[in-house]
Amino acid sequence: MIPASSNEPLYRIDGVSFAVGGRAILQPLDLTLERSRIYALVGPNGSGKSSLIKLLARQQARSGGVIRLLGRDIAGFGEREFARTVAYMPQFTPPAEAMTVRELVALGRFPWHGTLGRFGDEDHAKVEEALRQTDLQNFAERLVDSLSGGERQRAWLAMMLAQDTRCLLLDEPTSALDIAHQAEILALVRELAGKRGITVMVVLHDVNMAARYCDEIIALTGGRVFARGAPAEIVRPDVLAAVYGVAMGTSPHPRTGEPLAYLI
């Protein structure tokens, strides 16, 4: 485990770019992600959100620049070492045919026990903890594919928790969910991140959801970081119009008074 004492930020991104077939998806960009914070990554389609989060998760190789995780270039991490530090949930979670929730969650322990290692007491404890924290204990023996969309996302989240990492990277975890379940998942993420003191970066389409559940919003457009800051700094008509390319307005939430975005 990497010593947590150093004062390096969790992620430090220097001049990272990404191109596919000569087309630049991400312009060279710099970014730091601090520990124990929840970041939302927003932006229109094709702005590079998904690419950025995949670069952070080492799902894709960057075209240029350096990504440092706790001060070390992520390219230098071993596969399991990296997976003990960062957990990633793809945009579309694949069907887990004939797998129970508990089995799926237990896969999260792979980075710890490896291919041949024993599934020990600590592994069992972490799986139980993850099930408890996601309130899935009653579903533990159910088949993942028999769950509803929200429950299934929770099962995947539990798998990431069992991975016991410093950081969760979630690529549009709510895209297939109705509004109640979106809220439920994001609230859960926020609660657990607080409890465990971990960093979360989540790609979201809905800027209001981002504002409500995240500490900070990073707005991408055209492969560049257009703006970053607290929700109130981003949910402003001028910023949103520039990011999404449509005229948008804001008004205060009737209860909380936080700004809410809407299309004009």
Binding site: A57, R58, Q59, G78, E79, R80, E81, F82, A83, R84, V86, A87, Y88, M89, P90, T93, P94, L107, G108, F110, P111, Q163
Partner: peptide, 9 residues
């Protein structure tokens, strides 16, 4: 995606 994020070589 999942395999990589779980640290499978």
């Amino acid at each position: 995606g999942t395999a990589r994020s779980l640290g499978l070589p």
